[in-house]
Amino acid sequence: MSWRELRVTIPSGLVESVATLLFAQGAAGVQEDFLPGQAPPPRQPWDTGSPPPLPRQRVLVAWFEDPDPALVVRCLPKQATDPRWTEVPEVDWETSWQQGFEPITISEQLTVSPPWCAPAGALLIEPGQGFGTGLHPSTQGALRLMEPVYAACSTCLDLGCGSGILALAAARRGLRAHGVDVEESAVVEARRHASLNGLSATFDTTPILELEDRWDLVAANLHAELLARLAPSILERTGAYLICAGILADREPLVREALDAHLSLEQSLRDGEWVALRYARRTP
């Protein structure tokens, strides 16, 4: 089977109509892209204000099996410019995306790994729809700060659990662990990982504001703005220790301002631009 890829530049207002034309010519699918150097920076969850204006031109990429290139190009409107065909190399797409993932050693007690390359005893996390594959410094920082306090805790709450990695790491050490996330797809992933690892941690979509009980260890790998905004609720749930991760270094003061007056900062870790903090309840 021979796949060919067509790239063509068009005015942004013609994306839908040209894509429809390409499907009528047999395209299996279409991607909307930008000219090199014109892609706007991705909008982050903590960004506020209006996004920047988008470029006036787009690149449409369409994939065809055994096309008639001349016929396809003839059907394009005159505003479509610079059509280019390339062969698509044969690739095992089901497994090629797995490249670059490998076991990650967090501590002597914890290695996180995708299932296809896992050493014995690793915490299995399959990269997918739940954030927290173990690759990111914020996840690693949270896991490293949790490690020394497991022995002093019997319950753990993972706020914004994503893949469930933090709750599952705690469950492996014998804690009763529960994770919550606003995204249903993340909760599905977290439950799948619990099953994959044979752990009894539980997960659901309960909003943080509606949670009850206190938990010995609370892990919140959220961004700084969210941590600061939710600080009162997070503090209500925190029994002994609070781990805050996912903090960009230049935003650390936001979190410190919200928490330092209520808890004692025990340790902070910095990895690149990311900071993780461990707080403890002050002893009377």
């Binding site: 796949w3 699918g29 990429v61 369409a62 994939w63 698509v88 089901e94 995306w97 670059g100 997918g128």
Partner: peptide, 15 residues
């Protein structure tokens, strides 16, 4: 396969 393969393969996500 195309289009999902090339588009998501470059980003390294679970196709």
């Amino acid at each position: 396969a195309p289009p999902v393969g090339p588009a998501l393969g470059q980003a390294g996500v679970n196709i």
